[in-house]
Amino acid sequence: MTTRRRSATASWWRLWTIQGSWNRQNMQNLAWLVAVSPWLRDRTTGEQRGPWLRRYRGFFNTNPYLAPLLVGFVQRFEDEGRATAAPALVTGLSRTLGSLGDGLTWTGARPAFALVAAIGAVILGAWFVLIPWLIFLVAQGWTRSWALRVGYDRALDIGAALASLPIHRVTAAFQAAAAAAVGALIVTVMVAAPDRLSGAVGEKPIWVWLVGSVAVGIVVAELASRRRLDPTWIPWSAAVGLSLAYRLLA
């Protein structure tokens, strides 16, 4: 194994913990320096490391799944002797990747996988969640490896490299898949809920309770989206609402 491959493998493992020392001051900076350190050990002497670390010390925050791209980028830039320009570029790129990656993962891929897990778990049983989890685990591990490689190989034309990536299209595809999964989940819940409620709702038909719950949910969703209601209060609000409804309906 070459020195570069060995340090890249060590960085890849460390990048799994990119959020591990996240804090409100320097955010991911410590984890990022730790992820670069295998390469730093190979390339620098003890005296050179202090100034090197100082140059990259400070605020650093980006999408955790795409952070490897920046590690590869810095390694290549430093290898090419362009150390002066690298810190400013890293700051700019971390924001770009943060924006692109957060859309891709938090509003696209993760909801899509989680909703598929939810539908499968309701229909087939709890064990089903292992399948989307394992697929996501492998896919994001591969993404980290790919990002590390692309960051190094395309560091000198990183702008063109990022522009050529189909991140927006992939994000839109995941968001569409998640929307379809929400539609399927609505039907699944409405089909599954009466099984639980039958015989337990008194004289009123089951649909009265279901429609009432959805109506309450619409109001709660509106309040939560306007940040008027903390989500942790939703079950307690439901308890109060159901107590009142029970007195009226049951």
């Binding site: 989940l185 279901l210 959805v214 949910g217 709660v220």
Partner: peptide, 12 residues
């Protein structure tokens, strides 16, 4: 029983 039905509009 009803929280998933109530939560669907939030998800939606």
């Amino acid at each position: 029983w009803l929280t998933p039905a109530m939560g669907l509009p939030i998800l939606l």
